[in-house]
Amino acid sequence: MTAQYSVYALAGGLLVGFAFHALAIHTHVLKRILAWNTLGSAAFLVFGAIARRNTGAPDPVPHAIVITGIVVAISSTALALALARRIDEENKK
């Protein structure tokens, strides 16, 4: 185990709690989108901590996974924002 693992795994765990709470308690679309992005980044941070668990060079597989995850996250965020914008347009009609 490396000390970095404990620090970032714990931070990831706490961020999961914050983000889950914010996601559940808020009703505004933008707030919920922010919360799920934070939740996602917390899960990624957990992967990052796991990659650093062994001493020596970090495990590249979690890093590749996180890059994939980041791209997936922005895709769904953009779709959600576009949907919200379209709903706005309909409301204004």
Binding site: G40, A43, P62
Partner: peptide
């Protein structure tokens, strides 16, 4: 939009489990 949000919440729980 609600479908998307729910599905993503589900995916993120799954992803944490995978980690």
């Amino acid at each position: 939009l609600r479908y998307l949000m729910s599905a993503i919440m589900g995916s993120l729980a799954y992803l944490l489990g995978v980690a």
